[in-house]
């Protein structure tokens, strides 16, 4: 049978749609050892911290507990300021499900020390944005900060 048996008309092909029996699960992620301290600095002091590997001469942002190159523990935390430069950017015109957005949003990779932070850019038109442009983090008011990346509202041009 099988070798010769085929579904030849699309209309005969059935699929199984579990409908309401989808996959109602979610995930909860801890910020981790480094993240715990990194986000505490953002939440309480409005500061961005990196961790520095002396031997590899790299300052990781966001801070980490280890250097991925030499595998040493990183003990030295450095305040890297709240400014950086646009390393790259993209302009998003559609939502996750593919529908047009009301207004385009700009997503930037901001280079701070040797790391990149992915975030939104505000206060800049799509025409004016340039790679290499200096930008600054705009934080939410302290009372609204929860200890996450959303404590930074967006980056804006300097």
């Amino acid at each position: 049978m099988a070798i010769l048996e085929r579904i030849t008309r699309n209309i005969d092909n059935r699929f199984w749609d579990p409908g309401s029996e989808a996959f109602p699960v979610k995930n909860r992620y801890t910020a981790g050892m480094a993240g715990q301290r990194f986000f505490k600095e953002i939440k309480e002091n409005g500061k961005i911290f990196g961790s520095k590997c002396q031997s590899c001469k790299i300052t990781y942002v966001p801070a980490r507990i280890y250097c991925e190159r030499c595998f040493e523990r990183l003990e030295e935390w450095v305040d890297v300021g709240t400014e950086g430069t646009i390393y790259s950017f993209t302009v998003v015109y559609k939502t996750k499900s593919g529908k047009p957005k009301e207004s385009p949003s700009i997503i930037v990779a901001v280079k701070i020390a040797d790391g990149l932070l992915i975030h939104r850019l505000n206060g800049c038109s799509v025409e004016d944005i340039q790679i290499g442009m200096p930008v600054k983090a705009e934080f939410k008011p302290k009372a609204e900060r929860r200890g996450g990346i959303e404590d930074i509202k967006y980056f804006k041009p300097l």
Binding site: Y29, A34, Y66, C70, F71, R73
Partner: peptide, 27 residues
């Protein structure tokens, strides 16, 4: 039951301990 560490950090702790146990470095 629930660790503070991220998955990467857990992996790092185990890996670093294994390397230290035989006095090897990542290189």
């Amino acid at each position: 039951r629930r660790a503070l560490e991220t998955p990467k950090e857990l992996a790092y702790e185990a890996t670093k301990t294994a390397l230290d146990s035989c006095d090897l470095r990542l290189e």
